Deep mutational scan, measured.
Amino acid sequence: GSMEQGFLPKGWEVRHAPNGRPFFIDHNTKTTTWEDPRLKIPA
């Protein structure tokens, strides 16, 4: 929902695949990933 959306880094969006699995869109680089960007520790 909109709650989890608010925690994503700037430029990211979460969508759900037809099977219900969430995936993440990085509008900054125009890419998608199954990995939650929030789980990655910034270098």
Rank of each mutant, 00 (worst) to 15 (best):
Ala17Arg: 05
Phe24Lys: 00
Lys40Tyr: 13
Glu35Trp: 09
Phe7Arg: 15
Arg21Ile: 09
Glu13Ile: 02
Gly20Ser: 05
Phe23Thr: 04
Lys30Asp: 12
Met3Ile: 12
Pro37Val: 03
Gly6Ser: 12
Asn19His: 04
Lys30Phe: 07
Asp36Gly: 01
His27Gly: 05
Pro37Asp: 01
Glu13Gln: 03
Asn28Pro: 01
Ala43Asp: 14
Thr32Ile: 15
Leu39Trp: 11
Ala17Gln: 07
Phe23Val: 08
Ser2Met: 13
Gly20Pro: 00
Glu13Thr: 04
Lys10Met: 12
Arg15Ala: 10
Arg15Asn: 06
Phe24His: 00
Thr31Pro: 01
Leu39Gln: 13
Met3Val: 13
Glu4Ser: 13
Gly20Phe: 00
Pro9Lys: 04
Phe23Leu: 09
Leu39Ser: 12
Leu8Val: 05
Thr33Glu: 02
Asp26Pro: 00
Leu8Asp: 04
Arg38Trp: 06
Ala43Gly: 13
Pro9Gly: 04
Phe7Glu: 15
Gly1Ser: 12
Phe24Asn: 00
Ile41Lys: 11
Arg21Gln: 09
Pro22Arg: 06
Trp34Arg: 01
Ala43Ile: 12
Ala43Met: 14
Thr33Ala: 02
Lys40Gly: 13
Thr32Glu: 08
Pro22Ser: 05
Leu8Thr: 02
Lys30Tyr: 07
Thr33Trp: 08
Lys40Leu: 14
Ile25Thr: 04
His27Met: 08
Phe23Asn: 04
Arg38Asn: 05
Phe24Thr: 00
Leu39Thr: 13
Gly1Asn: 11
Lys30Arg: 09
Gly6His: 11
Pro22Leu: 09
Thr29Met: 05
Lys40Asn: 14
Ala43Ser: 12
His16Pro: 05
Glu4Thr: 12
Thr32Gly: 07
Pro42Thr: 11
His16Ala: 07
Lys30Leu: 08
Phe23Trp: 08
Gly6Pro: 10
Trp34Asp: 05
Glu13Asp: 03
Arg38His: 03
Phe7Thr: 15
Gly11Asn: 06
Asn28Ser: 06
Gly6Lys: 10
Thr33Lys: 02
Trp34Ala: 03
Gly11Tyr: 03
Glu13Asn: 00
Pro22Thr: 07
Asp36Phe: 02
Gln5Ile: 14
Ala43Phe: 12
Glu35Leu: 14
Phe7Ala: 15
Ser2Gln: 14
Pro22Glu: 09
Gln5Lys: 11
Trp12Met: 01
Met3Gln: 13
Lys40Phe: 14
Pro9Ala: 04
Ile25Tyr: 13
Pro22Phe: 06
Lys10Arg: 10
Gly1Leu: 13
His27Cys: 10
Pro42Asp: 11
Pro18His: 08
Ile41Gln: 14
Glu35Ile: 10
Leu39Ala: 13
Asn19Gly: 09
Trp34Phe: 09
Arg38Asp: 04
Ile41Thr: 12
Lys10Glu: 14
Asp36Gln: 02
Arg21Ser: 06
Leu39Met: 11
Pro22Gln: 08
Thr33Tyr: 07
Ala17His: 09
Glu4Leu: 14
Pro9Glu: 06
Pro22Gly: 03
Pro42Arg: 06
Asp26Phe: 03
Phe23Gly: 02
Glu4His: 13
Thr32Ser: 09
Glu13Gly: 01
Gly11His: 04
Pro18Asn: 08
Leu8Gly: 02
Phe24Ser: 00
Trp12Val: 02
Gly1Lys: 07
Lys10His: 12
Arg38Met: 06
Trp34Glu: 05
Trp12Ser: 01
Thr31Ala: 06
His16Gly: 03
Trp12Asn: 03
Lys40Trp: 14
Asn28Arg: 04
Pro37Asn: 02
His27Asp: 04
Ser2Leu: 12
His16Ile: 15
Thr31Gln: 08
Thr32Asn: 05
Phe24Gln: 00
Gln5Leu: 15
Asp36Asn: 02
Ala17Leu: 10
Arg21Leu: 07
Asp36His: 04
Gly20Thr: 07
Glu4Asn: 11
Ile25Arg: 01
Leu39Gly: 14
Thr33Arg: 01
Arg38Val: 05
Ile25Asn: 02
Glu4Gly: 13
Leu8Arg: 01
Glu13Met: 00
Phe23Arg: 01
Glu35Gly: 04
Glu4Arg: 09
Asn28Val: 07
Gly20Leu: 01
Leu39Tyr: 11
Trp12Arg: 00
Val14Pro: 00
Val14Ile: 15
Arg21Val: 10
Ser2Arg: 08
Trp34Gln: 03
Phe7Asn: 15
Pro18Thr: 08
Phe23Pro: 01
Thr29His: 06
His16Met: 15
Gly20His: 06
Thr31Ile: 08
Pro37Ser: 01
Gly11Trp: 03
Gly20Gln: 04
His27Gln: 06
Thr29Cys: 03
